[in-house]
Simulated assay, not measured.
Amino acid sequence: MLRIINAALNEELFFKIVGRYLTVVEVDVVYVKPFKTNPIVIAPGQTTNAIFSADKKSGRYIMIASPFMDS
């Protein structure tokens, strides 16, 4: 299980693990009906708990966080 926190001040973030779906089980200390997604969008100050299958060797996962940008 991962606890993902957006500590950015003014930006929503996209978070993903390449090649994996994340099952979200909690958002801002409230349990939710589990759902699978990739990526997760996290608002400033928001927390999320997500579960994923870790069946590769240690150090073989690519995690990406990028800011939401519109023009």
Rank of each mutant, 00 (worst) to 15 (best):
A65G: 05
A54I: 08
K33T: 09
P39W: 08
V24D: 01
V24R: 04
Y31F: 12
L9D: 14
L22A: 02
N10S: 12
A50H: 01
I17A: 04
T48Y: 02
I4K: 01
K16Q: 08
K57D: 10
T23P: 09
V41Y: 05
F15W: 03
E12F: 07
P39G: 07
R60G: 09
S58T: 11
T48G: 05
V32K: 00
R20T: 00
V18H: 06
F14Q: 07
T37M: 10
E12D: 14
P39A: 06
D70I: 13
A65M: 05
E26N: 11
G19E: 03
I42G: 02
P39E: 05
Y21E: 03
P39L: 02
E26M: 06
M63G: 10
D70E: 10
I4V: 12
D55F: 12
P39T: 09
S53K: 13
L2T: 02
Q46P: 01
F35D: 10
F68W: 14
F68N: 12
F52T: 06
K57M: 09
E11I: 08
V41I: 12
F52I: 10
M69L: 13
M1S: 15
R60L: 14
G45S: 13
I4S: 03
L13G: 01
V29E: 14
V30M: 09
A8R: 03
V30Y: 05
Y61E: 08
M63E: 13
I64Q: 12
L22V: 11
T48K: 02
L13S: 01
S71Y: 04
K57S: 14
F15T: 02
K56T: 02
R20H: 05
Y61K: 09
I51K: 00
E11C: 10
D70L: 09
V24W: 05
S58Y: 11
V27K: 04
V18P: 00
K56D: 09
N6T: 06
L2E: 03
E11L: 14
A50F: 01
L2Q: 03
T23M: 11
F15I: 03
L9T: 14
P34A: 07
N6Q: 07
T47Y: 00
L9F: 12
